[in-house]
Design a protein around this nucleic acid. Sequence first.
DNA 1: GTCTATATAGGGATAGAC
DNA 2: GTCTATCCCTATATAGAC
Lengths: 210, 210
Amino acid sequence: MAPKTRERILDVSLAMFNERGEPNVTTNHIADELEISPGNLYYHFRNKDDIVEHLFARYEDRIDKVLVVPDERLPTLEDIWLQLHAAFDVMWEYRFIYRDLVDLTQRNRKLRMHFTRILKRATESAVQILQGLVRAEIMRASRAEIEATATNVMLVATFWLNFNTVRGSGVEKHPEDLTEGIVQAMMLIAPFLRDAERLHIHTLAQAYRR
Amino acid sequence: MAPKTRERILDVSLAMFNERGEPNVTTNHIADELEISPGNLYYHFRNKDDIVEHLFARYEDRIDKVLVVPDERLPTLEDIWLQLHAAFDVMWEYRFIYRDLVDLTQRNRKLRMHFTRILKRATESAVQILQGLVRAEIMRASRAEIEATATNVMLVATFWLNFNTVRGSGVEKHPEDLTEGIVQAMMLIAPFLRDAERLHIHTLAQAYRR
DNA sequence: GTCTATATAGGGATAGAC
DNA sequence: GTCTATCCCTATATAGAC
């Protein structure tokens, strides 16, 4: 049996939002693509923002799972790489949110509050992990350096896809551009690493430099 | 004598775009605010994008002047601070461009090509300046580290205003938030500085940390 | 240069039949 | 649950008088 219409609307909306940008996709476009009537679409969702909010809720569930800080054990560089990768994957899947992030969050109070909360939580998580690296003696940094670095990691992660789009790196080439973003984020912490680990990071980075 | 209507349209459009975001300002809003008729507005500009393009051209002139690399003399940290400040000031003045950067550049080929060019030029400029710091022995970094850092400086500069908006730092509080962005960009190069200079930067940074 | 009036198009959204 | 038909509104843009 085919998926229920409600779910199909969400799936197709996500695909179209990601493809063309949310501002450039109308409810009529979505209905057309699904070969259902606009009236039918409005039976399932109150309005376009209702669709956006449900997609955002899906995203929030996913990203929240990525943001759990590893429990007892001290973190390794490998942990960080994997966690960044998981985060970037989810962000890629819901990249329409990031494409028009300011407009989306400014015009919808609910999205704004949730996104701010996610960002806050992620930043705290980043600080904790960096502190873990310090305690594991993999990295050496002051409290101030850790906080500035955590903020920059969040900024790079949040806007990497936009940056890559806007600098005209040519066509979208998932997943290479994602990996490049991860490398770029790792380069923020590289200067604080012990020599052996710094070398390791730069070797990884080498593979992805244009 | 009052400014010519054409110029007044540009000035008021800029103010309204910055305030509410370009997607949320219509040609009618602009005409209303100016207390002229929509017809009059369309006498002076072919369409809304025509206005946006002229504002962008103004911006491009301004930012190009900021991007000149200091000629002979090796750069100092002070130079970098001042240049970042000049760049952030111009970006603030035309912040509507950055607010909806992806949508703007994706739907208008002309804007896309010009913005990409600016970004490319700015990145090259950043690389040169960082190399200058290395030659001046103020900083120590490999070629790879310089390139990664230049890219991150551009990313932070490009999206700082959006990041600050979206993390819900409360109301817009120019110029404090700008200075904070500059500090955040400086923190990217701090780890590569000699001890004395790094200390100096962190003292500056201290003053602007929440 | 500026206005009034208006055309056109499209998006968001609803009513009511099936 | 789904469709057809339609309404309302707003945005862009133009024509033609002054």
